[in-house]
Design a protein around this nucleic acid. Sequence first.
DNA 1: CCCGTGACCGACT
DNA 2: CAGTCGGCCACGG
Length: 116
Amino acid sequence: MRIEDVKTEQDVKEFLKDSPKFATAVYLVTYKMPYGKVCTYGRVAKLIGKPGASRAVANTLHNNPLFPVVPCWRVVKADGGFGGDPKAAAGRRGRVQSEGVRIRDGKVVMNSDVLY
DNA sequence: CCCGTGACCGACT
DNA sequence: CAGTCGGCCACGG
């Protein structure tokens, strides 16, 4: 299964059939995130029934094998900041901003409107 | 099965 | 409001 052919939720599941259960759940939730919205690592953890696993979520998204099908750039830190390698972080910030999300001091302006 | 590794979080100073 | 601190947890070696 090639990444170019992944176009539906089923395709995503198929592509990740050999991945750990937790990782699959993370990518699936992220896959559903709407354009122009963002979510925090902690919230994603709760959404998949693993409250407290924010770090694990981050580790997982760091190795996103389905970029850009799975919009991992829409997942940010609790304070709206972008973690990881500064270069990559800047790239994700640019994408989020291009989707119309307001950025201030390098961080997403967190509010109920942009929060998924 | 223990251990180190992080794109983290919330509480507290 | 900016740091610090302890706790968290899946994953791979």
